[in-house]
């Protein structure tokens, strides 16, 4: 059930006029976070624009667990106030994501968590985090054989014998 909570006029003491947002995770945990921090997320920014248009602020429901959400908030807090090219809505679409050391350490989590973070980052439209997660997942399968990749990705060989042995020139034209 959506929880409507008014957080209008809330400010953080000593932090200027940054407003607070109430985020609700899929396991129904309520997390209060500064609007500033979450402005990296296009999804949240659009929600906030909506609040301003209607003068109605309400809790934002998110389809992932508080565990994942806290991780995303940690990421956004770290880069609070930083300009990251990939998150610039006016910049060209990113190619390969740049390597950021902090991100590598931050994303040193198990594979399932990584998949959940990338999905959450995609939902929240945080392109820099999507890019870093994509790089981290790619690192797991880099240099592996096809068989090892199946194991890591959790996929099964569903080719018919003919398909499996067809020449790879199909994709290379």
């Amino acid at each position: 059930m959506p929880t409507i909570v008014s957080v209008d006029d809330s400010t953080v003491p000593g932090e200027g006029s940054s407003r607070l947002l109430l985020l609700v995770s899929s396991d129904n945990k309520h997390i209060v976070v500064e609007e500033d921090i979450m402005s990296r997320s296009r999804f949240i920014s659009k929600q906030v624009e909506g609040f301003e248009a209607t003068s109605q602020r309400h809790a934002i429901l998110l389809p992932f667990s508080s565990f994942v959400l806290n991780k995303v908030i940690e990421y956004c807090s770290h880069y609070r106030g930083y300009y990251l090219l990939e998150d610039d809505p006016d910049a060209a679409p990113p190619g390969r994501s740049p390597v950021r050391e902090w991100d590598q350490e931050f994303l040193d989590v198990d594979r399932n968590m990584l998949l959940r973070i990338i999905k959450a980052a995609h939902y929240l439209e945080i392109k820099s985090l999507v890019g870093s997660c994509a790089r981290a997942i790619a690192d797991m399968i880099r240099g592996k054989t096809t068989e090892e990749m199946r194991e890591i990705l959790g996929v099964e060989n569903d080719f018919t014998p003919e398909e499996e042995h067809s020449p790879s020139s199909k994709c290379t034209g």
Binding site: S97, A138, T145, T146, E164
Partner: peptide, 16 residues
């Protein structure tokens, strides 16, 4: 997109 061609070809052989 983060992988090089060898990994892309290996990936291609995993599943449909």
């Amino acid at each position: 997109e983060n992988l090089d061609y060898k990994d892309v070809l290996a990936c291609k052989a995993t599943c449909l």
